[in-house]
Simulated assay, not measured.
Amino acid sequence: MRAAHKRWIAAALALAVLLAVFALYLQPEFMRTLADQIWACF
């Protein structure tokens, strides 16, 4: 496989991961759970 193909696949995977994380932040219950977990550290 060419280096250009590997770079394109890596960029596509990185974009997919970023979009998945962004989608989680749009869910209010996820944000509440995350805030509760962070607050529990103190």
Rank of each mutant, 00 (worst) to 15 (best):
M1Q: 11
M1I: 02
R2I: 01
R2K: 14
R2C: 08
R2Q: 06
R2S: 12
A3T: 05
A3P: 00
A3E: 03
H5T: 01
H5Y: 07
H5I: 01
R7M: 02
R7I: 01
W8N: 06
W8M: 04
W8E: 13
W8T: 02
I9E: 05
A10I: 04
A10N: 13
A10E: 07
A10G: 04
A11C: 15
A11R: 15
A11Q: 15
A11T: 15
A12S: 12
A12V: 08
A12Y: 07
L13M: 15
L13W: 09
L13R: 15
L13E: 06
A14L: 15
A14N: 14
A14E: 12
A14C: 14
A14W: 09
L15P: 00
L15W: 10
L15N: 12
L15M: 14
A16Y: 01
A16K: 01
A16G: 04
A16L: 05
A16W: 01
V17G: 02
V17P: 00
L18Y: 02
L18N: 03
L19H: 07
L19C: 13
L19G: 08
L19F: 10
A20E: 08
A20K: 13
A20P: 00
V21D: 07
V21G: 01
V21K: 06
V21N: 08
F22W: 08
F22A: 11
F22E: 03
A23F: 11
A23R: 10
A23T: 14
L24P: 00
L24R: 10
Y25N: 08
Y25T: 08
Y25D: 09
Y25C: 03
L26S: 07
L26R: 09
L26F: 06
P28E: 09
P28M: 04
P28D: 11
P28F: 02
E29T: 08
E29R: 12
F30T: 00
F30D: 00
R32T: 13
R32M: 14
R32V: 09
R32S: 11
T33K: 13
T33H: 11
L34S: 06
L34K: 10
A35P: 00
A35N: 10
A35S: 07
D36T: 04
D36A: 12
D36L: 11
D36V: 03
D36G: 08
Q37N: 13
Q37H: 11
I38C: 01
I38Y: 02
W39E: 11
W39S: 10
W39T: 07
A40T: 03
A40Y: 04
A40C: 03
A40N: 09
C41V: 11
C41H: 13
C41T: 12
C41W: 11
C41G: 10
C41E: 07
F42N: 03
F42L: 07
F42G: 01
F42W: 10
